[in-house]
């Protein structure tokens, strides 16, 4: 059964394009075009530090996006990732800075919080069958409130790099000599490879895709849909935990009450990358590329002198185009 489930994320008509990855190829071309365009238009953009920064600010969105891709593939969604990420970062940081615990403990707790939230979301969606949009909307609010309660509504500053406790920031960016290297990108690549294999080559991944395609048929063929459906949300929670760590490492200061809206960046990234909002199809590599389209736009548009509000409009248009491509492609492939 598991072997027959097809991840429609790679469904195209041209065999060559299919091999390289359909929509992913288009998205990759978009990224290259955007990068070339900004580089030609702005001298200030053409710098190593710009690439470093694009990567820096992409880690937390990428992690959230990898996680939410699993929720989206089941035909669900997870809106709690934005405020959740901030909440876990606050709790972990609180333990380190206010309770005097070692950074390692803070990092583990940050991940555990993510997993716990995943379990809660999974319980609401898979066991209690509350529509994912509603369930995770509620947990989004819970996460926001919880972060404020734990920290007494005060912002938390994770230890700076210069201090003994600041080593965790080198997980994502390491300085050798005078040059900084985006070490975090290595972890992103490794996790992308692992999760691509999990999604496409393992039984749990196949079942998650199958649930998104047709939950009832999957259940009737003897699969424990509740278990695997729940797993998708737990994976999402775990990656939100990673995102919390990446966010703290990049921005250092985490403010309670924030994070709402960041989940949309991640969801947009996944959708641009070819994950279907209807479920049953998605690609982790596509998600990474989708996130980079967003990051490229956010970073590049200010360099060509575009006012902040125009950036939002252009990002909105790009999203429409991406979804449109998906709709047309799905129609063409005869389904």
């Amino acid at each position: 059964m598991a072997g027959k489930v097809k991840n429609a994320g790679s469904r195209t008509t041209n065999p060559l394009v299919e091999k390289i990855g359909g929509q992913r190829l288009v998205v990759l071309l978009v990224i290259i075009t955007l990068f070339s365009f900004f580089s030609i238009k702005s001298e200030a953009f053409r710098q190593y530090s710009t690439i470093l920064s694009i990567l820096d600010y992409s880690y937390y969105i990428t992690f959230m996006a990898i996680g939410v891709t699993f929720a989206l593939i089941t035909g669900g969604n997870d809106l709690s990732i934005g405020t959740g990420m901030v909440c876990y970062g606050l709790i972990g940081g609180f333990l380190i800075t206010k309770m005097g615990m070692p950074v390692g403990v803070g990092l583990v707790v940050t991940l555990l919080c993510g997993i716990l939230m995943g379990v809660l979301n999974g319980t609401l969606v898979a066991i209690m069958e509350i529509p994912p949009f509603i369930a995770t909307l509620c947990t989004m609010m819970i996460a926001r409130g919880l972060g404020s309660i734990v920290t007494g509504s005060m912002s938390i500053t994770w230890p700076p790099l210069a201090t003994e406790q600041g080593w965790f920031r080198s997980i994502f960016k390491i300085t050798i000599g005078d040059t900084k290297y985006p070490l975090g990108f290595l972890w992103v690549i490794i996790l992308i490879i692992i999760m691509t294999i999990v999604l496409n080559k393992t039984r749990p991944g196949r079942y998650i895709i199958a649930i998104g395609s047709n939950k009832e048929a999957t259940r009737l063929s003897g699969v424990n849909v509740v278990k695997w459906h729940m797993l998708a949300y737990i994976i999402c929670g775990l990656f939100t935990g990673f995102a919390g760590i990446a966010y703290a490492a990049t921005f250092q200061a985490v403010a309670p009450g924030t994070g709402a809206g960041l989940e949309l960046d991640a969801i947009c990234g996944a959708i641009i990358g070819g994950t279907s909002m209807k479920g049953g199809a998605g690609s982790i590599v596509g998600t990474l590329l989708g996130v980079f389209v967003m990051s490229m736009l956010k970073t590049g548009l200010p360099y060509i002198g575009l006012q902040a509000n125009w950036q939002q409009i252009i990002t909105g248009i790009v999203l429409i185009v991406a979804v449109l491509i998906d709709v047309i492609r799905t129609k063409k492939s005869g389904k």
Binding site: A44, S49, T50, S53, Y57, F251, A253, T258, G261, L262, K298, T299, P302, Y303, A308, N309, Q311, Q312
Partner: peptide, 15 residues
């Protein structure tokens, strides 16, 4: 920035 996030303000400063 178009919304108050650390990322957008940081990008503005880098520009």
């Amino acid at each position: 920035p178009s919304s108050v996030t650390s990322e957008l303000s940081t990008i503005d400063c880098q520009t």
